[in-house]
């Protein structure tokens, strides 16, 4: 449970690597991120939201797990929201994650690349990005509150942020 957040009837649903979860209020979607990126889309009127836990920037033709890749996650998320009656113009997005952890080795640029592709895909789809908390070299624990659309971001040794 996130400190500072009052426990209520909202379900807390973890979203694992490569997963996308769509749900509506009352619910909170949570993830822990390192180099991965969380993309959220939210339809405020319906209090409906989706979170994808993106692992890699490009699918390179792979279609089996669209939420795993930044370039396939965005169109997939849009189609899931549209299937639920949301118009494209009603969506707002946020992006968090994309850290470079522990020096990173050969994969040190992946986090940055994940964030860059996610942002580019959202911009190409004309979905306004109203919050972002990306890059750096520490992990993030995030909580997407479907009642408000806020994204709470916590990192060890840093004050929590709400975007």
């Amino acid at each position: 449970m996130f400190p500072g957040i009052e426990k209520n009837l909202a379900r807390e649903m973890p979203v694992g690597m490569g997963q996308a979860v769509v749900t509506r209020e009352p619910a909170r979607l949570t993830s822990i991120l390192g180099s991965c990126v969380a993309i959220t889309m939210y339809a405020p009127k319906l209090q409906l939201g989706i979170l994808s836990h993106v692992v890699l920037p490009n699918a390179n033709g792979s279609v089996a797990v669209p939420a795993k890749f930044a370039d396939s996650a965005v169109p997939y998320m849009i189609s899931v929201m549209q299937d639920r009656g949301v118009k494209l113009g009603e969506l707002v997005a946020k992006v968090a994650g994309g850290a470079c952890m522990f020096g990173g080795g050969r994969f040190m640029d992946i986090g940055e690349h994940n964030a860059r592709v996610a942002i580019a895909e959202l911009e190409a789809a004309h979905i306004p990005i109203i919050g972002r908390d990306i890059a750096g070299n520490v992990g993030r624990r995030i909580c997407f509150d479907l009642s408000t659309g806020t994204l709470t971001v916590e990192s060890p040794g840093h004050p929590s942020r709400i975007i």
């Binding site: 690597m17 390192g34 180099s35 991965c36 952890m101 522990f102 992946i110 520490v138 992990g139 993030r140």
Partner: peptide
């Protein structure tokens, strides 16, 4: 750090 955050990068 968060174990899951570090594991993510290790799994790449």
């Amino acid at each position: 750090d968060f174990g899951a955050s570090v594991l993510e990068q290790a799994l790449l």
